[in-house]
Simulated assay, not measured.
Amino acid sequence: MTRTFDQRHIRRAFSRSAGSYDAAAALQHEVEKRLLESLDYLGERVPQVLLDVGSGPAHAAAAMRKRWPRAQVIALDLALPMLRQAKKQAGWWKPFARVCADARALPLAEASADVLFTNLCLQWVEDLPAVFAGFRRVLKPGGLLLCSTFGPETLHELRESFAQADAVPHVSPFAPIAQFGDALMMSGFRDPVLDRDRFTLTYDDLPALMRELRAMGATNALHNRRHTLTGRARFAAATAAYETFRGADGRLPSTWEVIYAHAWAPPPGAPIRGQGEEIAAVPLSSIPIRRRAE
């Protein structure tokens, strides 16, 4: 399989941004808050083990620990400096475990978690069905998966502007909602439901947007990215192209499409990706897809 992302670059970028992430990640925190509301799907069920994958500074892990103080909560992230920030969230009175690991190879026992929560992490993954199969492996039968990712409308203004200035891509590709739902089915999850939000953030100029992306660790991690500086001429051309998007309010917009999903791990013995043709027998049109009110 052709690799889309440079995982070492991703680890370095988020490690460097650990100290600045919280201040820059207002959108990520809002999406996290909305995803946490989906824990209500558990009803009266009290989970014993909850896993926060791609936890960053682990606000979600802290919220789950507060909601279920007797549960074991694990914050897992690729970047060790992020987990050091997470220690501040853990506190001394209701601590949670912190594990430095890759979402693509979870170091947890099979059927060990009641809930797997992952907020805006999966956009850095090439093979969604494989990662979902790993998620399914660690979830108990009937366990709840809650996840979010960015959709293809995300940063389309930035993508189009740099495309006019440089033949090398500057913005990652993002999986559409249909591909996201299909990946859940391929890995054997049951009863997936998908939602979609569209946010618009505004900036004074292009450098302000780029500074915020760097502060969040959201830099260009594509394998085929330009490995030298963009250059003044290319950046000036991208800046001029971005100016065509400036709104009547005098601000430059950036679009962020967010896809949310929840699904349930199947009973024991159900086939995983590639182990049974019946997985693909459910048409994508049968997955409920909702557009949240803006």
Rank of each mutant, 00 (worst) to 15 (best):
residue 193 V to L: 05
residue 12 R to L: 10
residue 169 P to Y: 10
residue 57 P to N: 09
residue 105 A to E: 11
residue 92 W to K: 13
residue 228 T to G: 12
residue 53 V to E: 03
residue 37 E to G: 08
residue 29 H to A: 12
residue 6 D to N: 14
residue 102 D to I: 05
residue 189 F to K: 06
residue 256 W to L: 02
residue 113 A to C: 14
residue 32 E to C: 13
residue 98 R to V: 01
residue 265 A to V: 02
residue 185 M to N: 07
residue 130 A to R: 14
residue 93 W to T: 14
residue 159 R to L: 07
residue 168 V to R: 13
residue 57 P to W: 04
residue 124 W to G: 03
residue 211 R to N: 12
residue 256 W to I: 00
residue 294 E to A: 14
residue 114 D to V: 01
residue 268 P to R: 12
residue 111 A to S: 10
residue 153 E to S: 10
residue 14 F to W: 03
residue 63 A to P: 05
residue 105 A to N: 11
residue 285 S to G: 09
residue 1 M to E: 13
residue 152 P to G: 08
residue 140 K to Y: 04
residue 73 V to F: 08
residue 284 L to W: 10
residue 18 A to S: 04
residue 54 G to F: 07
residue 116 L to Y: 04
residue 220 N to R: 07
residue 126 E to Y: 13
residue 138 V to I: 07
residue 168 V to M: 13
residue 186 M to A: 15
residue 193 V to M: 04
residue 134 G to S: 04
residue 11 R to W: 01
residue 165 A to L: 06
residue 202 T to Q: 14
residue 234 R to C: 09
residue 82 M to F: 12
residue 244 T to N: 14
residue 55 S to L: 06
residue 219 T to H: 01
residue 74 I to K: 07
residue 247 G to N: 13
residue 107 P to V: 07
residue 121 C to S: 10
residue 18 A to T: 03
residue 113 A to Y: 01
residue 42 L to S: 00
residue 52 D to H: 09
residue 270 A to E: 11
residue 91 G to P: 11
residue 275 Q to I: 08
residue 210 M to Q: 13
residue 236 A to H: 14
residue 241 A to G: 04
residue 145 L to C: 02
residue 61 A to I: 11
residue 126 E to C: 13
residue 161 S to Q: 04
residue 212 E to C: 14
residue 125 V to A: 08
residue 262 H to I: 01
residue 68 W to S: 01
residue 244 T to V: 13
residue 7 Q to C: 11
residue 18 A to E: 00
residue 277 E to C: 12
residue 102 D to S: 15
residue 102 D to P: 09
residue 118 T to K: 00
residue 36 L to A: 07
residue 279 I to F: 10
residue 86 A to L: 01
residue 181 G to E: 01
residue 189 F to R: 08
residue 143 G to I: 02
residue 202 T to P: 03
residue 283 P to R: 12
residue 237 A to W: 08
residue 16 R to G: 08
residue 291 R to L: 04
residue 293 A to S: 15
